[in-house]
Design a protein around this nucleic acid. Sequence first.
DNA 1: GTGAAAGCGCTAACAG
DNA 2: CTGTTAGCGCTTTCAC
Lengths: 362, 362
Amino acid sequence: MSSMENGAEVPAPAARAPKTPERAHPVTLRDVAEAAGVSTATVSLVVNKKKAARIAEETRRRVQDAIRTLGYRPNAMAKTLVSGTSRFIGLVADGVATTPFAGQIIHGAQDEAWKHGYALLIANTEGNGELEQDAIQMMLEYKVRGILYSTWFHRQTDIPAPLREAGFVLVNCFSNEPGTRAVVPDEVQGGRSATEILLGHGHRKIAFINATIPAPAKDGRLQGYREALEKAGVPFDPELVLEAYPDQEGGYGATSDLLTRGVSAVFCYNDRMAMGLYDGLREHGLSIPDDMAVVGFDNQEVIAAHLRPPLSTVSLPHYELGAAGVRMLLGLDGAPGTATDGVARINCPAVERTSVRAQAHA
Amino acid sequence: MSSMENGAEVPAPAARAPKTPERAHPVTLRDVAEAAGVSTATVSLVVNKKKAARIAEETRRRVQDAIRTLGYRPNAMAKTLVSGTSRFIGLVADGVATTPFAGQIIHGAQDEAWKHGYALLIANTEGNGELEQDAIQMMLEYKVRGILYSTWFHRQTDIPAPLREAGFVLVNCFSNEPGTRAVVPDEVQGGRSATEILLGHGHRKIAFINATIPAPAKDGRLQGYREALEKAGVPFDPELVLEAYPDQEGGYGATSDLLTRGVSAVFCYNDRMAMGLYDGLREHGLSIPDDMAVVGFDNQEVIAAHLRPPLSTVSLPHYELGAAGVRMLLGLDGAPGTATDGVARINCPAVERTSVRAQAHA
DNA sequence: GTGAAAGCGCTAACAG
DNA sequence: CTGTTAGCGCTTTCAC
């Protein structure tokens, strides 16, 4: 069973090791101190570039040489042990690593954390409660500075008990407990923006194909749609709001119903539905955007940017969600719309492509 | 800078804290020892369930009670400080968190690591060399057990110098230095499988739309295509191999060229090209799979499973790549095809959907 | 069975 | 300017 020893290890054991000394016993601060003929304190000072204590140039050089030749590498564990506080931020996700674009939450969190000198400790729990508990437990044991608790789609969530033992902020989800810090996409604004793209091109009869499954996105986007209409002085017509399962098949299936409404434009709950709708429309011999203008939601790159014609849509700001999450966790919110209830609603920017064209007779 | 104290913290400071004592000073082993009236050594023993030293039932109970009431939580830093070895595995990625499906590498690595008691420390470097150095540096300082170095698409890569200071394995990439451990998808087998799907349905004249950009995938899939053909006794015809940029537009653009070849089936370099080809074929009034059978590569969920008709394709085993990576790192390879050169080639399983139909006159 | 004591590698006063 | 000296929280001999 223990194969590989051969292929992997044998190749060139005799090669010279100029850079990496054969550290049988990892080099410590003390080793450096002895080599440089100074005390550990001094070494510590030069390693950490403390400006408070001035070190003689000559000494500093000796120490740095020793560090280089010995290949010294500080032990972060020891460092955080004494300082009491680690430089970790935990990210527990119920599936962001699994989902296509939600991985951006990780990316955003990682970038922002890094920017402030923190490393990301991640755990994907795939919705498994026990695993989740363990993961949080583990993070607590590593004395994380705080935990980001995120879900792969925007929804309400319960707060796992152990989470409360650390500072935490919910990302892409929220709690019904007042005052809980959270960062979520601004669905209402997103729905408004999507509708405004259509409105802006002169469309007045605009359908909205909503999702059948309940979610903050469902309510929020609908509300945004209504707000945009109202602001434009277009009366809201419930007849123009359809519902379908939020994927390609749902969008495709909604086609004939949609055509029944006599609209010139449609706002789809998400890009996947729009993709299905493209097929449906095409089968009816209709062309986009001339016969029907369409906008989606999510800005799911693989789809939106490459449909024919490319789809106008609204971005789900996953990267920002992650980044804003760590900012909030670290308590350095510069400006964003953190409402008084502790939840920040992140803007969903519109991205216009060519699936919308001006209405001939505005 | 220290805003937020208000919105986030104020809400209910007076609530009873039954579970979470107001630990002004985190509970330590010593605290527990004192509370239980035993020594720290004893507490350590019961915490770690050492079977060697038998503890009196009565003592054990006292200790466990103290642990519970004090809300004791071991300090992993201290633990690894003394043991010298941490339970971390580092994953540095040049963009897997960014890319739709490659996030599965993280997922697979995380699951497997967790299974063996390791936590994942990740860093997304977005191809930034300096950041990459820093990230590896950081991981080294945290005394990671080893590092997984991964790329978001399968390619050759250079080994960053600091990486050599730790155990490491390349994931989804490989080095030209012999003996370097790596885990990559088996492109050749994948190309073979894709072609065999078509062959299996009776097709003989099969085109292959390859990518224009050089990559192991380009060579491997082509080789697989040829091998499958040969095995089926179908002569290889260079005329049937086209090339196009590997995205929707490329696939779309290759349509007329393809139709020129008089084939009944086509194997596309990836799903995105297949998606574009669908549009092109449709515009020519052709239907899939009747007029043209098509298979893709990648099994990019959002696309492949929801095209009309759903696309037969071959999976890029990202999850497995990540999982196999940690297994190899930990040195517990059970069986997989780890060739003698230290690189494991992971199988790319075919997933058949309905974009292929049997040829009328086989 | 259980306690005392010596460190793991590093930082932080406080002397000199 | 630099060395001494305590620990940080935990594990681990080795006595009692």
